[in-house]
Design a protein around this nucleic acid. Structure first.
Lengths: 153, 153
DNA sequence: GATGTTCCATGTATAGTTGCAAGTGTTGCC
DNA sequence: GGCAACACTTGCAACTATACATGGAACATC
């Protein structure tokens, strides 16, 4: 615990920098969509079309709440309702082209910004950063990514 | 750009993991305070007491909006108004003990979680992670931390 | 076919954020 | 002293999120 304390300090620093990157990458999307709404789009983007109930569960929203939130998302043209082939009482939600583009745009901007930062390092430095980050990512892997939804990312 | 691309991928992974940490660390605070409110507390914590107008500017809020947001923050006991010694028309905002404790608690939890992750690595691995992260932090340093406010961190 | 369950939508209500505009008190300047 | 600029607050209004309860259609089971 003693040795990892300075590494933890460095990590806190990096987390600030990375959060800046994330915040910037999301900020343009937040001009057209709210954070809770963007959350939904991200879930749809990674998990594919889902039922209303399942989707509501993923973002920890109430059914009733979620139904109306989805009204707005659909009205904005980011997602669409369709009837499920399996059961007529189920409503399937899927991203529209606009919705997918919005999420992709955010991811790409984030990737570009990170690449730009790394480009300031020499190739050997980049390699050591990559190796170290992979180590960290593996060590952090046990942690669920579920809570990301709190921030809508 | 070729070499940094895989490093960028690793960074994206890490940013997800770190965001998970951040989200978890903030989530308990969000049970008693909203995200925009917590934002204000973070600014106060790092910058010290500020005028209403300056504080509103820092979180990109309207004066009128901010005045009432502050009503709620003050009502919650997280910050307090006081008259400025310089001018009686200025209102100085400062954190209460509760407000400071709330922010500190989040920071400490974040630090603990990161330390816990790093503890899974061997000491040499920790050292290499620390060195790599410092490299990254330095490379990212040009980027302003201002945009963090978008996420309220 | 009657019953109960699942899934979604709607009714109703509360709380927070946000913006524009108007108002109050304070300060500085002529 | 009078007047404009400044700092903050309040009135008014719209929008979003969230929750609990209710309603209604589709399905499963018996």
């Amino acid at each position: 615990m003693r040795d990892s304390s300075s590494a933890a300090d460095a990590t806190l620093l990096v987390s600030r920098a990375l959060l800046g990157v994330v915040a910037r990458s999301v900020s343009t999307a937040l001009e057209v969509v709210t954070l809770p709404q963007f959350r939904v789009l991200v879930v749809l983007s990674s998990a594919g079309p889902m039922r209303m109930g399942a989707l509501a569960g993923r973002v920890h929203a109430n059914q009733s709440t979620f139904s109306r939130s989805m009204d707005k998302i659909v009205a904005g043209g980011w997602a669409q309702r369709s009837s499920s082939p399996g059961s007529r009482r189920e409503v399937l939600i899927s991203l529209t082209a606009s919705g997918r583009a919005l999420v992709d745009e955010v991811t790409e901007r984030r990737h570009r910004e990170i690449a730009a930062i790394l480009d300031r390092l020499t190739p050997p430095e980049q390699e050591s950063v990559r190796a170290a980050l992979e180590l960290f990512a593996i060590a952090a892997d046990e942690y669920s990514v579920e809570e990301l939804l709190v921030l809508g990312i």
